[in-house]
């Protein structure tokens, strides 16, 4: 009870301020109101409206969230969270987390993986903000989020893309993409331009850039000299 006692002792006298001090502040406030311009008054009222707008956007976000419209919910939670309204940051993080999960399960295009990571990154940022504000469970949810969106793991929902003309069982005469990348750049480029198994391997790797997320599976050339190395 130690903490409560101190807090209540402080609370018991919080309203006791010398009357003269309060009156001086009141006179100052009235003077300030009288002397301010119309523009300043309008600005003040606009700021007050903004406070009410935050409240309205938060309610709208909750409504969208309840109805399952996650994109709209994220949009309106974002407006409320920008002003640190209530638990908007935490709710926004959860919605973005759900959207990233949906993106992972239902990849629509080649850019889906990037969208998923973008959503996950934004979600992680808002989980951090929420944790900083006092939502302790945000830390656990951030851990789950990070574990669920590991760029090194292949996407479970992703369908294998098969190149037209690629024959099953066909093998690269040079021993595969990793070996090819150890050759001179001009040789490697010329080879990949004609070798279907290497092209298939490249597609499976989702190009060169996604491979960079996985340091262990980087072709030797890229690891040793960077993408421009010869």
């Amino acid at each position: 009870m130690t903490g409560e006692a101190e807090l209540l002792a402080a609370g018991a006298t919080i309203g006791d301020m010398p009357g003269a001090d309060v009156d001086r502040r009141l006179r100052k406030l009235k003077e300030h109101r009288r002397s301010r311009s119309d523009l300043a008054e309008l600005g003040h009222l606009a700021e007050l409206d903004r406070v009410e707008l935050e409240c309205a956007t938060y309610r709208l976000a909750r409504k969208c969230h309840d109805e399952g419209d996650l994109i709209e919910a994220a949009r309106w939670y974002g407006v409320a969270a920008a002003g640190d309204y209530a638990d908007a940051s935490f709710e926004l993080a959860k919605v973005l987390d759900s959207l990233a999960g949906l993106q992972r399960e239902n990849p629509g295009s080649r850019g889906s993986r990037r969208e998923e990571f973008d959503l996950a990154e934004r979600s992680a940022r808002w989980y951090s903000v929420a944790y900083g504000a006092g939502h302790q469970e945000a830390a656990d949810m951030l851990d789950v989020l990070v574990a669920g969106h590991d760029p090194r793991e292949p996407c479970a929902g992703r369908q294998q893309v098969h190149l037209t003309g690629a024959r099953t069982g066909e093998v690269c005469p040079l021993g595969g993409l990793r070996r090819v990348m150890e050759c001179r750049l001009t040789t490697a480029t010329a080879h990949v331009g004609t070798c279907r198994p290497c092209q298939q391997e490249l597609v499976d790797h989702r190009g060169i850039l996604p491979v960079s997320g996985n340091r262990h599976s980087l072709p030797v050339r890229l690891r040793a000299r960077g993408p421009g190395g010869v």
């Binding site: 609370g11 006298t13 919080i14 638990d87 006092g134």
Partner: peptide
């Protein structure tokens, strides 16, 4: 008089400080 208490409330996370301040102080 209550500087230590105020400093301790300030050190809390935002929502905790708000709730503690509104409930116990105000």
């Amino acid at each position: 008089e209550h500087r230590a208490v105020i400093a301790a409330v300030r050190a809390l996370r935002r929502r905790h400080a708000e709730v503690v301040g509104l409930h116990y102080l105000a």
